[in-house]
């Protein structure tokens, strides 16, 4: 039982790093009032270009930068359409997703089946030897450790800094933010850009660290799960981390059950994470109303 729980939690942390990056990115964007359904596309961009850079340069830092930039720049398309051109956020986001899928499928074509050095697990000395907690938290790769820092950082940024206040103000009401001397468009562009960068890093974790391979469409819906998790977490980075762990835990749980020869069909077990999400949404449904940035509902038509 003890080992089972440890296995589930380790699996949860290990497998959900990529989703967490995208969740953090989406939280930032939505706090500024922009929903980006194209997170999947940004993740694919990061996964693909990170892998391609790694294949050519064998340089981890450079690949991470390439992945983040790819995610950030592709999300700028969304920012342009939505912020400057006032396009429908949902349509533009979906377009970005298809765009990312197609472009990465094309660019990445020659890299399918290529072998790269990749990023391996790096257990932290001493810390990883702590019973129970050690293996769960400290036997992963650098990108996973980075989320331990990034998540609280984003939380502090959003809720305890002036810049964070500005982002949230724009997300609640562009007009008021504009009236108080902020530049809503610039802030939204930046929030979407950095959000896309985070998604790109998440994609790179999947291709460079987690599987060491690239294949078209390898994110398999993780970008959309991230969008759902943002709502689930009520636009809060710390709860977002909890949500990804819960989601990843549900997946790891079903795999661990199967490996132990459970009699329950894997096809039913596969639904656990989604059932869990639905249950939480039902239970916490009411509080959600107040947590949602107002700007996500409104269409701002004023001047900049």
């Amino acid at each position: 039982m003890f080992l089972f729980l440890q296995g589930v939690l380790t699996g949860a942390v290990r497998s959900e790093t990529s989703v967490l990056y995208a969740t953090l990115g989406e939280t930032l964007g939505e706090r500024a009032g922009i929903t980006n359904l194209g997170m999947e596309g940004c993740m694919l961009m990061g996964a693909c270009l990170g892998f391609v850079t790694m294949a050519h340069t064998d340089n981890l830092a450079l690949s991470m930068m390439a992945a983040a930039l790819a995610g950030g720049l592709s999300s700028l398309i969304h920012a342009f359409l939505v912020v400057t051109r006032r396009a429908n956020q949902l349509a533009s986001g979906l377009a970005l997703m298809f765009f990312g899928l197609g472009v990465t499928g094309f660019i990445g074509r020659p890299y399918v089946g290529m072998k790269i050095r990749g990023l391996n697990e790096l257990p932290i000395p001493y810390l990883s030897e702590i019973p129970f907690v050690g293996p769960i938290l400290f036997t992963h790769d650098v990108l996973t450790y980075l989320t331990y820092l990034l998540t609280p950082l984003l939380w502090v940024f959003l809720f305890y800094t002036r810049w964070g206040l500005a982002v949230r103000a724009v997300g609640e009401n562009r007009t008021v933010a504009y009236a108080s001397g902020l530049r809503p468009s610039l802030i939204q562009y930046l929030a979407v850009f950095f959000g896309g960068m985070l998604a790109g890093l998440g994609g790179a974790h999947l291709s460079i660290a987690y599987t060491h391979m690239w294949v078209e469409g390898m994110t398999a819906g993780r970008g959309f799960i991230a969008v759902a998790l943002v709502i689930f977490s009520m636009w809060h980075p710390l709860r977002g981390m909890l949500g990804t762990l819960l989601f990843g835990g549900a997946i790891a749980f079903q795999l661990q059950l199967q490996a132990r020869g459970s009699r329950i069909s894997p096809y039913i077990l596969d639904m656990t994470p989604y059932l869990l999400t639905l249950a939480v949404l039902l239970l916490w449904g009411r509080t959600r109303k107040h947590a949602m940035p107002e700007g996500l509902k409104a269409v701002f038509e004023g001047v900049d």
């Binding site: 398309i77 533009s92 377009a95 765009f99 899928l101």
Partner: peptide
Amino acid sequence: IVVFLVSFGILLR
């Protein structure tokens, strides 16, 4: 622009 993005993606596939 939206249609372009989608069709470009699908075309490349």
